[in-house]
Design a binder for these strands. Structure first.
Lengths: 304, 304
DNA sequence: CTAATGTCTTTTATCGTGAAAAAACAGTTT
DNA sequence: AAACTGTTTTTTCACGATAAAAGACATTAG
């Protein structure tokens, strides 16, 4: 099916699904521009959504009046997999191959083959590879193919080295922020969420990764340096797949991490540079350890 | 002209030009694979080159025998501008616009317009923007346009902050390299070239930038960290355009920088961490100053 | 007269296509 | 038989075209 397909309408489908969830809460929808702002899409997309909602009898739509007629049914939703960006699909597919073994370092990456395998055009794959190259896992040979550098121990060490450098500096900058900065409020809120999660860790341990990212991003932002802030994308991406990949002792690991986070937050609030430094180092060290244990040990260099 | 053009043959033209320069030195050319390795292109391209050289009477070509018949004439060469990569063309064009003023921060970037203006396809522009985004000068709005962040004072400060962090660490790693590492030889050679240039600074001052890049890259490589090494691309790119842009007191600036480099090299050779740190800091501080003075002062934020 | 809706235009995202260049394969020469 | 040349196949690079989505403009409602 669909061989001449030019562009998927995932933006529309995703926004439609999110709009459906809104329906439960109100008896009538707001204006088109307002809805657009709420869903993060243009009015054009909003109108497509409204048109379909009218068609399927979810709402009655006449100019400004958008009255909800019935609650959404499970199969009013578009299937999850149709709401993903092409970039997400390609990334997932690529990472699956990379982590599922058989992906030796030095192996060459074939754009055409990847594109065919995933069922997308070569342009999209090319653009993905260019974007992905900043993560340091692949490299381009001048006017030739891409080469896989591999998700190795060396990679993890290089990544964490930078991470530690950046985060120590950001954490120090954090303590220097004025008392009336909104970050202190954000920090308090995060602390609260950590405490709640710590209490319910038995059932909700998998919600930690999201909290982890939010805390570290808040701290990195204090550096006010775009290169430091952007670098967190690399870390986030790696940890995202790492969490999915390594489920061993997830609960215990997250429980420990929450404890470290709380100590870290405490240190930040004390504004004592020495304490901050110590708490930050302690947490990053254990994060590095966790990452390293999930990577298969590489053979020591052979003497021939 | 050329509206259905699919791919320029700049690889061929550039390699052809470089091959012409080889002709002066020998009476006959080596084998096809050897020539390919020498020029950094595939044998397919080598054969195209040889075919044309035969056509234009530069060589007689019969299987293994490739005898040079005459010296190349200036108009045997392809014009310089036809040997550039599309990526180079787009980058130059883009940077010219950016530096030539009128490029306010926050301005939106239009792919189609850029493509038309430069006379290339939209795909190439898109791929360029994706690649270029890692330099921190532009940013993408989710499923919408690109936004220019501007070549501002803030940018220069953020860039140099990272640079200083990375280079101090690399320089420290450098001193820890074993005595038999080839870097010490490289360093000696660079020192020699610096001394020669220092002597002939009056006429050759514009050759400094290349030397500068080679020294700093050598040092950064000692970090053995791909993120640090790759980050030098950002620095190199910025300084490349900065050198073209700001010609004021170029000779004096470069003379000072050579002095700093020599002191820096001396410190590295002494393997004294304290000296290295001091020399590195001194040089980076003046490099930052040079960069900052070339950026027009931004107005302080208005109170309204 | 402001803020919405209705309509039209522009821009982005993605594909298939074809030429340039690389790479693989097959046949020769020394 | 090792290394080269001749030939064929693959892969990368760049384009124009087209649907999705954004954005601009014109019109109308409150």
């Amino acid at each position: 099916m669909g061989q001449g397909m030019s562009k998927s309408n995932n933006v529309y489908k995703d926004a439609y699904n999110r709009c459906l969830r809104l329906l439960d809460e109100t008896r009538s929808l707001p204006s088109e521009p307002e809805l657009g702002a709420l869903l993060g899409v243009s009015r054009t997309t909003v109108r497509s959504i409204l048109a379909r909602m009218e068609e399927t009898g979810l709402i009655a739509w006449n100019k400004r009046a958008k009255t909800v007629l019935r609650d959404p049914h499970p199969d009013d939703f578009f299937p999850e997999e149709e709401t993903d960006t092409l970039a997400e699909i390609i990334e997932r597919s690529f990472m699956r191959r990379l982590l599922a073994g058989g992906a030796e370092a030095g192996m060459q990456i074939n754009e055409l083959e990847l594109a065919r395998e995933i069922g997308v055009g070569t342009t999209s794959v090319r653009e993905f590879l260019i974007r992905f190259s900043r993560f340091g896992l692949i490299e381009k040979r001048r006017n030739s193919h891409w080469v896989l550098k591999g998700f190795t121990r060396a990679f993890a060490l290089e990544l964490t080295e930078i991470r530690e450098m950046f985060e120590l500096r950001s954490a120090a900058a954090f303590t220097a922020l004025p008392q009336d900065s909104p970050v202190w409020g954000d920090l308090d809120r995060l602390e609260g969420e950590h405490r709640v999660l710590a209490r319910e860790i038995a059932t909700r341990f998998n919600e930690f990764s999201e909290l982890d990212e939010r805390l570290h991003r808040l701290i990195h932002r204090a550096s006010r340096n775009r290169f430091i802030v952007d670098f967190y994308d690399v870390i986030a991406m790696i940890f995202h797949y790492h969490y999915q990949w390594n489920k061993a002792q997830e609960r215990e690991r997250n429980e420990v991490a929450i404890g470290e986070h709380l100590a870290y937050i405490e240190a930040l609030k004390s504004r004592d540079l020495g304490k901050v430094d110590a708490a930050c180092r302690r947490h990053l060290k254990s994060a590095r350890q966790t990452l390293l244990t999930s990577i298969p040990e590489s053979r020591p260099p052979q003497k021939s």
